[in-house]
């Protein structure tokens, strides 16, 4: 499809454009912006650079919600599934954060590990139910993020990310303060629990609306904020726009790769993001181990209970 053809007024092409291509583009942008902002919010609130919708049980909770909707309302619409996913994602994230707030972690890496195990618990229940009701393969459509089913009329939920991201932008400073700890925010007159759980709710709703439409996409929420923080620092307000834009570009590029590799077929975005994301993440880890705090600042010095000072010198610190 070429732009000139659209300009010449070919109705059929216009239809393809409006029904499939434009929604796909918008969905990609919303996904990229939404997931990376959700990751940024969660990292900021917990002041731990390894927390994200994937490592914070949000995605697995949303999947669980979708499965519940499929089980109890086989004829459910996208909207009712979305509502289920919203509720479970919010609850799952809340419970996870409530857990990690109670515990003092010896090393910040333990937080994502606990989150992953937490996600495994929820995933285990989801898998069991899916297995029992023979829904495993149907469910795998929501386990693998892909844009091939994004068409006009069945993707609009993903637009919800836009107002949520704007909301996050408005309250960015509050999230910053809450990330510095309970006593710190009380001192500045910020209601700690309210802001914390409101922020988590925003992150969870963004995640859930993406999972319902395109399926789960891991890593974006983890990697994009970290990459941006490498050159911008840790302040949420300054980095929020960069994070959002970078996220959109990242998903767009991944989608293009997925469509080019095995033309005329396409690979699901989750696969591309999964492969690229793993590599980038491991590279980030090694980079950080080599150059320490200078480049990527992980964790802040706050007294927040879900943060501990990172062990920057690796195994060699006294």
């Amino acid at each position: 499809m070429k732009p000139q053809q659209l300009l010449t007024g070919d109705l059929h092409l216009w239809e393809i454009f409006l029904v499939s291509r434009l929604p796909r583009l918008l969905a990609i942008l919303c996904t990229g912006v939404g997931m990376s902002v959700a990751g940024l919010i969660m990292q900021q609130l917990c002041s731990n650079k390894f927390v994200s919708p994937t490592t914070g049980a949000t995605i697995s909770s949303a999947q669980f919600g979708i499965l519940l909707a499929l089980l109890f309302m086989p004829a459910s619409t996208l909207w009712s599934r979305a509502i289920f996913a919203f509720i479970t994602a919010i609850l799952g994230t809340w419970i996870f954060v409530w857990f990690i707030q109670r515990i003092q972690f010896k090393d910040m890496v333990m937080v994502p590990l606990v989150g992953i195990m937490f996600g495994n618990v929820i995933g285990g229940v989801t898998n069991y139910l899916a297995y029992k009701y023979e829904m495993t393969q149907a469910l795998s459509s929501w386990l693998v993020g892909h844009f091939s089913l994004v068409l006009k009329g069945r993707y609009e939920i993903v637009w919800l990310t836009i107002p949520l991201v704007i909301l996050a932008f408005v309250f960015a400073n509050h999230f910053n303060i809450v990330g510095l700890g309970k006593d710190f925010s009380k001192n500045l007159g910020v209601p700690y629990n309210l802001v914390l759980f409101a922020g988590l709710t925003i992150a969870a709703m963004i995640t859930a609306s993406v999972v319902v439409v395109v399926g789960s996409i891991s890593y974006i929420g983890l990697i994009v904020p970290n990459v941006v923080a490498m050159y911008k620092g840790d302040k949420i307000k300054g980095t929020l726009v960069d994070t959002a834009l970078f996220g959109a570009i990242f998903v767009l590029i991944c989608d293009m790769i997925g469509r080019i590799v095995i033309l005329p077929y396409e690979l699901p975005i989750e696969l591309i993001v999964g492969i690229l994301g793993s590599l980038i993440f491991i590279a980030l880890l090694f980079y950080r181990l080599k150059y320490g705090r200078k480049s990527i600042r992980l964790g802040s010095t706050g007294t927040n209970s879900c943060a501990t000072m990172p062990n920057l010198k690796g195994g060699e610190q006294i």
């Binding site: 390894f50 994937t54 490592t55 090393d107 890496v109 333990m110 994502p112 590990l113 992953i116 693998v144 891991s218 890593y219 989750e270 696969l271 993001v273 999964g274 492969i275 793993s278 993440f281 491991i282 880890l285 090694f286 181990l289 062990n311 690796g314 195994g315 060699e316």
Partner: peptide, 23 residues
């Protein structure tokens, strides 16, 4: 490679878990 830091090995392990999982 991680300067003998077991926790980072573990983190890499979980990254690989989701890497294998997405394939």
């Amino acid at each position: 490679k991680t300067k003998h830091n077991v926790l980072y090995v573990l983190l890499v392990g979980t990254v690989l878990t989701s890497f294998f999982g997405s394939i």
